[in-house]
Amino acid sequence: MKDVKVIVLRTAGTNCDKETVFAFELAGAKADLVHINEISRGEKKLDRYQILAIPGGFSYGDDISAGRVLAVEMMNKISAQVDKFVADGKLVIGICNGFQVLVKTGLLPGFNAGEAGSGAAKQSVTLFDNDSGKFDCRWVHLNPVEGNVCVFTQGIETPIYLPIAHGEGKLIFDNEKTRDKLRAAKQGVFKYSDAAGKPGPYPINPNGSEDDLAGICNATGRVFGLMPHPERHVLSTQHPRWTRGEASERGDGFAIFRNAVAFASMEL
């Protein structure tokens, strides 16, 4: 297997970076923590890597709104490198705050780009204040959407169990057309559900997301974002009920990192 190199992008207010590095390394990749200034100043290059991870946290304090300021910085300062990375078919994952960033840059779901995909995509969905009105840290079940095109989640066929920790995670569309297009292109990846895969109100859908969506990908399935934290469930003792014998050796989130590394190793 070819060595897979992951860049975990950080900036002021990033956290979850160390556990994201740990999860990728557990899956066999080599992961570097890189500050965005190192990219924008040309000290490090994105194209040296096969996977870009934007971890959770509160980039720039989530001031103004979650992920907005980092999204603006990426679009204005490193967009050429990021766009090329995506155009090359490399993998991008945004977790929690990283998902908020990907949505606010328009990279997810990647609609409204100019002619033949030229130019940057425009924002068409957002992650808005939870219906509960507060930050919520709890465990949720995620039902994989049948036939979804995401390369990170292939082989996941039954609900997985991950924690969320966010205040702005309610996914909403700008209009019905976007919703229909996302459905038709199988870009919905995970839906909040109960353990059996059935949808339901709070706390099953913890934030009020439209269509119960917890994670989406772009049309190629290679850019993926989700609100829950797969990197916080790669070990058995991270499961909230491992003392009740409910955990297996690897946590449910591990498959996402394993899939990404395996795909990158073979295809990129």
Partner: peptide, 23 residues
Amino acid sequence: VARQYDHEVQGASVLKPFVGADN
């Protein structure tokens, strides 16, 4: 109160503030 705090970040959690069949 406890659910408004992120008690999972850093991934080190082994016993959480709330446990049991329904957490």
